[in-house]
Design a protein around this nucleic acid. Structure first.
Lengths: 222, 222
DNA sequence: CCGCGCCAGATTGTCAACAATTTGGTCAAC
DNA sequence: GTTGACCAAATTGTTGACAATCTGGCGCGG
């Protein structure tokens, strides 16, 4: 039986912190005091320091010499930037998934689409969100592009804080479903161009709505 | 007068190591012993450790528990993967540079193109390579997409070890020049679609040649 | 009342010592 | 000759202590 792989403590802490920040357990601009984090995660301060350096490089936190680290508040324009960059990569992933994907992957996609449909008819936002993630994940797996995986992983950790704003927009799930269906269809019929186009369309509309949501928030004084 | 910003030692060491690995000062699979690096860069072992963690996350090195770090040897398929991912992002950057670039940037591009032409007529490979980097850098600046910048920076650090193979191909500079000229023209005339297409074409041919160069190397032994 | 310098506490940056683990080699037994 | 246990050196993993620096508040002088 192959041991569940060791994984360095530092790597682990980076992942935990990344997740925590992405989930909003630390608010933007919140100070991240090394000693506190060390205690909270029951590790040495050195590990926290290392994790912060990694997250700094990823853009999730900012560190100023002798002034410590804080959660980086991504600006509105930057959020859009990130969404656009994600779009560029996921469009490529959709293409590669079409070209390199296996039958099992295509079957998975179709199943996920079904679940999505159910989520929409039942107005189950949580289920929909879950299916959404599953679909994108399956496409990444089919594409088998580890580089793209890593980048998307990082980009999404920036976006999760924001996407709930979009998902909750009235009528969004229904529109999103149609877009997803188009992607699944293209991938399953082996039309790589169409798959890329469909994904591009999907994420373009996501980016547009994100932009609107941001504007609205700014106006409405949150 | 704004101080040239402090920059943490750790961040600095990460950058130095990244550069060194990218330049091939450490060969693939070479062991990276913390104590040795600490001495070479005149810093504490803790700094090296942190830097290695960052580079691990970036995919430049691999670390195994209790067995240390070594330069990650990127496989052939992965090199192509990286080139394709780069393509996806730079195509977007070209588009954004067209839409958001300023007149000064466009003037720069035209100047760089001139220098490139000179490099080709003089068969000055070093100059050409320099112009090539300058052109892509200027496009990134014009696009003003910090997220894309960071990602491209990382991706390129993986590719530099390989690109000399492509640049040295007979006739490559001349073909590359035409592709670059098309990009500059599209960006300067404000045709974003054309700019994206031109960049895509340019990097597609780069990826194709990289693939060929890799195949050739594999055949030719060594 | 306001500004300024200065001090104490909090926090980060640096470092060296120590513990834990792997690796490669040696030697004995078969 | 080969196998395997075992030991020593090298290396990584962990931890605590100490130095350097920032922050906020206090009191002094204007």
């Amino acid at each position: 039986m192959p041991m569940p792989r060791p994984a360095l403590a530092e790597t682990d802490i980076s992942a935990q912190l990344r997740e925590a920040i992405a989930r909003g357990q630390f608010s933007p601009n919140e100070r991240l005091v090394e000693a506190e984090l060390a205690e909270r995660y029951s590790v040495n301060r050195a590990h926290i320091r290392t994790a912060l350096a990694v997250l700094d490089r990823e853009g999730l936190v900012v560190r100023l010499p002798h002034r410590g680290a804080h959660v980086r508040a991504i600006s509105d324009t930057e959020a859009i930037e990130i969404a656009e960059t994600r779009l560029a990569i996921e469009a490529m992933v959709a293409r590669q998934a079409t070209l390199r994907g296996d039958a099992k992957g295509r079957a998975s996609l179709r199943q996920i689409e079904k679940d999505m449909r159910r989520a929409v008819t039942q107005s189950d936002a949580a289920l929909y969100s879950q299916c959404n993630a599953a679909l994108h994940r399956e496409l990444q797996r089919m594409a088998g592009n580890a580089t793209a995986d890593r980048i998307l992983n990082t980009l999404k950790s920036h976006l999760v804080r924001l996407q709930y704003r979009v998902i909750l927009l009235p009528g969004r799930p229904r529109a999103s479903l149609a877009e997803h269906a188009a992607i699944v269809k293209a991938v399953c019929t082996g039309d790589a161009d169409a798959a890329e186009r469909a994904m591009r369309k999907h994420l373009t509309s996501f980016a547009r709505l994100l932009k609107q949501a941001i504007e609205a928030t700014r106006m409405g004084g949150f």
